[in-house]
Amino acid sequence: MRERTSGRTVGGFRNLFLQGPAVTLLLLWMLVPLGMTIWFSFQRYNLMMPSVSGFAGWENYYYLVTDPALWTAMGNTLLLVGSVLAISVIGGTLLAVLFQQEFFGRGIARLLVIAPFFVMPTVSALIWQNMMMHPVYGVFAWLSKLLGLPVIDWFSAMPLISIIIIVAWHWMPFALLILLTAIQSLDDDQVEAARMDGAGPLAIFWFITLPHLKRAISVVIMIEMIFLLTVFAEIFVTTSGGPGLASTNLAYFIYIRALLDFDVGAASAGGVIAIILANIVAIFLVRTVAKNLET
């Protein structure tokens, strides 16, 4: 008995000692930049104009929300997040069902189809831009000519759609990887029983597979959303947000304010908006994970 009580206090100190470094580092990593962003967002602070300084109140936010570019960027962000989510979740679910079936060379085919997730964003952006979608030398242009279709100059005719294709190519395999793992825990007996009762493949998919995947799908949606809200490298490398603002999303908009205009105040106000958006999603993700932690 005596041993247990002493063990508990020693355990308390040990926990502090063992978890201390990790907790302290993360606390600093979270609070310092967050505090600074919020502080800057209320300051007149431009690296190019050192003489202008002082408390700005809501000025940066006012300037930001009255800037039509912000709303274009928000619209593009929504479109990008929405389309990539739709493509990757629907595509990922259907492919998970397909790649769960028995067929020849399944192991290798699975490796090939999840590969894009491991390609660094700058590489995937450049391969797509130059070798796939290039209006003269690209594979797509060659295919169009072969089929007698008009050649599309992807990045100037439909810049946002081109970015969506590149980003979806990266994230659809992620959805597939997660859903394929989740689908493997599906109870075969249940499926067999349903088949015995005369359920067709569509009914099995709709009433058994899909409900089984529900939680995995929601996790995929939330994780992707957090990353998709701030897609950056693909735009930086290919279109630089253009032509005009056609492919500028929120992340790229903040980047322009920050490192091209050096307007720390406005960039930070944009940053605060991005943080708020991400946290709305994050609350749901943390809840789902927390539910899972109890069981």
Binding site: L34, A251, V281
Partner: peptide, 11 residues
């Protein structure tokens, strides 16, 4: 992990 990097780019 939910703090988007672009939100804290400036700091």
């Amino acid at each position: 992990k939910m703090l988007p990097p672009v939100g804290v780019l400036m700091p």
